[in-house]
Design a protein around this nucleic acid. Structure first.
Lengths: 413, 413
DNA sequence: AGTGGGTGTTCGGAATTCTGAACATCCATA
DNA sequence: TATGGATGTTCAGAATTCCGAACACCCACT
């Protein structure tokens, strides 16, 4: 689905153009079709509405797509270009991609494949309308729905999710979407307060500030048992606002082991919003990176030219135990310290450099051991290969072979 | 002219390879030619000298150039890759360029054109004139780059690396390269302090001495949790200097298991400098030996005439669990006690004479290494054979086979 | 009782490694 | 200069290792 996407199609062939136009419109995109490079140039330079992508043929009656792209690059940062061509050369493809084109497809192509690549490209653009809160995955969308539903009531909400899953984000969203959005939003991070009780109920504490607003209690499980009753009492006593609390998965265990606390938690858990960990929502991790990247990149002296596809794969594959916080921190570091022109996996995961033994395959371990042993034997035989072979109980030729493979040389010095 | 450029050529075709090799050597380049992906992988990971470019065929007897490139990207920042292939597709070219490959050329090509593109690629490489800090490997160069970059800010730095990797060296380099080089550099080795907290904040402690200088905290993971808050507070309170901390790999586990510490960690980890272990930077081990050797040799009554090539190989093959510290100690002992006129492997690794290595057959050495690696892998996967097999890159049945043969059992615990 | 995921075991063919034979070289030395 | 012993190289067949498919089995979960 390309609903709402603004696309410019530059294609002189009537049949091809019409077919693409129809197909993309069917998918819900708004498409403007130009048949000449000059016209397209103007349309892209001064668009009626922001352009999300350009589909561009190379051969055009009054020039080439490549010229069009280059011209645009001179004066502005063009929207993502997806080139399609029937007479493409590898050189041209390489040149264009290196120049920053988003993709390059040769005709004839499967329309389904084409649409998929287009969709992939568009998913990187921030969407207009209501921006997703946590991501684009079904799970994230569902969290969003739950938050909006919760906003319509004023019952207490419990947000459950691992570190860095955006619990506070959801809490704020609930507040913003509610009728009380004008009222205060007071956060108390119980994990960070030395004395949670006074932070809540002390004079000038959270309870004094919140009024009819929202009191957001982060890390609820850290609230000492002694404060439970005080909190429940305060809620009963003509409290006009609402409580939104959050915690990790540890709740389940606490509840199971402690009846008294269970009761308390159920009181706050009238509405529960579970947020799956980021590692299980790989699409969201990628999406989040693409949200954060442009701004971070812009802050560089010499901006990077992009994010390598391998890098995206590595982000997809990572577990993100630290959730969005980890992703943000890693990305920040990576973008700042990137060594090349493209962001690479190593920039984001520098620690892969230092994991020893890990990842060493059996063959590698074997080779290393053999190499060490061979060198050893050679040392004992003063470099005599035949003797060493005998000592190692292999034929001379085998030893010779291995020395070649492992890169062992015996020269006088 | 490619004078002085170090190039790795990966090409299985004899004729093509020989021709390219000859041509590039004529132009003055130093070229290393590999015909198998596996060997090339090793050579690029741990080169004899810094590699300026890799010329890589796609089709290889034991894999594809694309796989080679992807594998490299996982664990290191590869040198520029120029792919050459006879059976190239546009899709492949697009994919590779998006993944960060430098160029892509299809065979047959004009050798002149090829050389031109190669030269273009090489001309982009900046020549560093600074003496290396940790070594000549790409990884060491990268550490150096990161250190210099870190010197330009005053944000906290975290240096991560195993024993003897030169963490303090890097910290001092950062200080020296910064604008504050005149200020103090105060080291606190938390592993050695009985009472870390008072060593830091006690009267006359490190915090009193540091002023606007650098406070270097070695073994950060030893800092008791209670001191975290104090440190963060101290950093906030008008601290004009900067913190550089170091730790081993154990930090990752601590973070994963403890949300509160994660926060603290991210505060200190604004810039992360990972130092790979010396055993994975074989060229640096050799380089370091060559740095240290002359001086040690000069201290002898009757100086040695040199270092045997086998000795260099043995240094390359050892995995240096103790890092540079171990190397220095061994070399010192070896040079002092050398029996012959050349430094031999036995001088540096005397224990090979008495240890099981003696008389061990190649097959035995191999089996021993396999056994150790398998046990290690099983430990990491909590005894899951399938997972371990995957990690070791062998089939499950093969692993099972080997376990039988080597007498490894997984007890239920 | 059913189901799914992992383990223990077997087997045949594919892939590889190893080996001995053969031969050209090189080099110190008789 | 002849000679013996070592190295560098190729080769084809033997030996082995490796893999995937298949199947029984166990056990935790439902």
């Amino acid at each position: 689905m390309l609903r709402g996407a603004h696309i410019v199609l530059v294609e002189d062939d009537e049949i091809m153009g019409a077919s693409l136009l129809q197909r993309m419109q069917l998918e819900g995109a708004e498409v403007i079709w130009h048949k000449q490079a000059q016209r397209a140039l103007g349309a892209i330079r001064t668009p009626r509405s922001p352009i999300d992508a350009v589909i561009c043929d190379i051969r055009l009656p009054d020039g080439t797509g490549e010229e069009l792209y280059n011209t645009l690059c001179q004066t502005s940062a063009p929207p993502p270009f997806l080139f399609i061509t029937g007479h493409g050369g590898i050189d041209q493809a390489v040149r264009l991609i290196k120049a920053g084109a988003a993709d390059y497809v040769t005709k004839p192509f499967e329309i389904a494949v084409f649409l998929e690549r287009l969709a992939m490209l568009l998913s990187q653009r921030p969407k207009g309308g209501m921006p997703p809160l946590l991501g684009v995955s079904p799970a994230a969308q569902r969290v969003d729905e739950l938050a909006l539903k919760a906003a319509k009531t004023d019952r207490p909400v419990l947000i459950v999710g691992g570190p860095g899953t955006g619990k506070e984000l959801v809490a704020r969203r609930i507040h913003q979407a509610s009728d009380q959005r004008a009222a205060a939003f007071v956060t108390v991070n119980l994990a960070r307060e030395a004395d949670p009780e006074s932070a809540l109920f002390g004079s000038g504490g959270a309870w004094d500030q919140v009024g009819d607003g929202v009191l957001f209690l982060n890390a609820l499980s850290r609230l000492p048992e002694a404060a439970h009753l005080a909190l429940l009492d305060a809620m009963e006593g003509g409290f006009g606002g609402r409580i939104i609390a959050s915690c990790g998965q540890e709740m389940a265990e606490i509840i199971a082991s402690n009846d008294a606390r269970a009761d308390f938690f159920y009181r706050l858990n009238m509405v529960e919003i579970p947020i799956p960990p980021l590692g299980q929502r790989t699409e969201d991790a990628v999406w989040l990176m693409q949200q954060l990247y442009p701004e971070m990149n812009a802050a560089r002296n010499r901006p990077l030219s992009g994010v390598s596809s391998l890098c995206i794969e590595s982000v997809r594959a990572h577990d993100w135990p630290g959730g969005g916080r980890e992703l943000r921190a890693r990305l920040q570091r990576g973008v700042e310290n990137a060594s090349g022109d493209l962001l690479q996996p190593l920039d984001i995961f520098p620690e892969t450099l230092i994991q020893p033994g890990r990842g060493q395959t059996l063959a590698e371990a074997r080779d290393a051991a053999e190499k060490a042993r061979i060198i050893d034997a050679l040392a004992q035989t003063d470099g005599k290969i035949s003797k060493a072979a005998e000592m190692l109980k292999v034929s001379r030729t085998t030893l010779w072979d291995k020395m070649q493979k492992l890169g062992i040389e015996v020269k006088s010095r």
